[in-house]
């Protein structure tokens, strides 16, 4: 068969539109996911029994179910249960917030508790209150350790947005699927889609590498 470049040329505007949406969902979802993840992770690491249990249940529920089921639940089941309307875009972003939040919580918890307890004691021994020890001493060390796994989670979440094809969000994969259904040019379209994903994840990897090099991991 012949690789027809003009197919890609024609499809590009729609694909780029899809890629924009993919990025939008990823960014919005991860901003929320970081907040949820930090709160849940710190609850796991330092919370009392109740806070710890709440965070634990949340994390296990999310990690124990596929993200497709999670987004289906948010989009189709939640409206029935709670009598609220959810548009596909909101459902997609919420799904990333909830899903990434759980994985980020584990990253946050892991990096905080991995910090040698001697640092905490050294801070306390100076006469600092516990919160200052967390903010000024443990936090910065933990934060540096989070960068590689967080970078990884960003890439995973970005690719996870392709699963929102199931609720009809016009992100990159969905756009590819729709164009393909009209012109049957599978090779060209899926090549183009794959390359667009690679460009996005490649950029992220590059940013991650540079950040890692700049910030000495302690």
């Amino acid at each position: 068969m012949e690789f027809d470049w003009s197919v890609i040329e024609d499809a590009m505007p729609a694909l780029l539109g899809g890629a924009r949406l993919t990025i939008l969902i990823t960014i919005a979802g991860l901003v929320g996911g970081l907040i949820v993840g930090f709160v849940a992770g710190l609850m796991r690491a330092y919370g009392n029994v109740i806070l710890n249990a709440i965070a634990f249940v949340y994390i296990e529920l999310v990690r124990g179910t596929p993200i497709v089921v999670q987004v289906m639940f948010i989009y189709f089941a939640l409206p029935v249960l709670a009598d609220i309307r959810v548009n596909p875009m909101t459902a997609a972003i919420t799904a990333i917030v909830v899903n990434a939040g759980a994985y980020i919580a584990e990253i946050v918890r892991g990096s905080f508790i991995s910090v040698h307890k001697g640092l905490r004691e050294a801070g306390l021994a100076l006469g600092l209150p516990t919160w200052k020890v967390l903010v000024y001493i443990i936090g910065p060390v933990a934060f540096r350790r989070m960068i590689p796994p967080l970078g990884n989670q960003v890439i995973v979440s970005l690719k996870d947005t392709s699963l929102f094809i199931v609720i009809g969000v016009g992100e990159l994969t969905r756009q590819g699927q729709e164009i393909m259904a009209a012109n049957f040019r599978a090779v060209e379209i899926w090549t183009a889609v794959a390359i667009l994903y690679l460009l996005m994840t490649g950029t992220l990897t590059l940013i991650l590498r540079i950040t890692e090099r700049r910030m000495r991991i302690l």
Binding site: H116, G118, L119, A122, G127, I137, V141, L218
Partner: peptide, 24 residues
């Protein structure tokens, strides 16, 4: 109580076997 303990810790400096310097 906590705030008095913080005062005690300010009056009693500690040096550890493993140094425990803040690495960042």
């Amino acid at each position: 109580g906590r705030s008095n303990v913080r005062v005690i810790r300010q009056e009693a400096g500690m040096v550890f076997q493993q140094f425990n310097l803040f690495p960042q």
